[in-house]
């Protein structure tokens, strides 16, 4: 942006001098105002940076508090989603069921899909479950190879113990089969 500004300024320098001659005292006044403005701007910018820092700290503390309060580790179950390559499948939506109850229906935007393709991992769901055996069913909807409508489901029976449970839905390309593969991984 600095570069662009320089270009604009340079062109004006050449063309405004033919008729318009600002009085010297006015030019000086403008320069002083500009300097004051820059000084104020720097001061305010520093103030805003401090403010941002404090707000971020507050957010960090409140996020931790929220998680402790709403999803304590003893009952927490989090479901993540990642995409590896994704050439054979364009994801549109995911439906999650735990113990036959729908807990999430998520429709993806292009921006989110792009973020997933670039290595981002989405936290699709976080909730609470009792200790014991549970069943997770994830249904993936989208476009499969050659742009055809594609719908697949993956199931996992998992044991919820007394610490937080992390599950990851993985959409992986199978080069050998030229098909997408849907997996559910349990994280220790």
């Amino acid at each position: 942006m600095k570069i662009l500004l320089t270009i604009g300024t340079c062109a004006l320098l050449f063309c405004t001098s033919l008729f318009a001659q600002a009085p010297a005292n006015e030019t000086a006044a403008t320069a002083t105002t500009a300097a004051t403005g820059t000084k104020d701007m720097r001061g305010l910018d520093n103030q805003i940076q401090d403010l941002k820092k404090e707000v971020l700290k507050l957010n960090r503390d409140l996020f931790i508090l929220e998680e402790e309060l709403l999803f304590p580790a003893t009952s927490q179950v989090a479901v993540f989603l990642s995409v590896d390559v994704g050439e054979f499948f364009k994801l549109d939506a995911v439906t999650l069921k735990i113990n036959d109850k729908v807990i999430s229906n998520y429709l993806y935007t292009d921006r989110e899909i792009d973020a997933l393709h670039r290595g981002g991992v989405q936290r699709l769901h976080v909730g609470n479950l009792k200790v014991g055996k549970h069943e997770l069913v994830a249904t993936f909807t989208g476009k499969g190879p050659r742009g055809r409508d594609y719908r697949r489901a993956s199931t996992l029976v998992f044991e919820k113990l007394s610490d937080a449970k992390y599950l990851e839905l993985q959409i992986v390309d199978s080069e050998a089969k030229h098909q997408p593969v849907f997996k559910i991984k349990e994280w220790e």
């Binding site: 971020l56 957010n59 960090r60 996020f63 931790i64 993540f80 990642s82 921006r111 989110e112 792009d114 973020a115 997933l116 670039r118 290595g119 981002g120 991992v121 989405q122 936290r123 992390y166 990851e168 994280w187």
Partner: peptide, 24 residues
Amino acid sequence: LDFGHSLYYFFQREYLPAIINLTV
């Protein structure tokens, strides 16, 4: 996974949730 989760927001240029998740 938490690192990947921050990247998810980062790649969408949503820096506030990305920063918060990363610092958490």
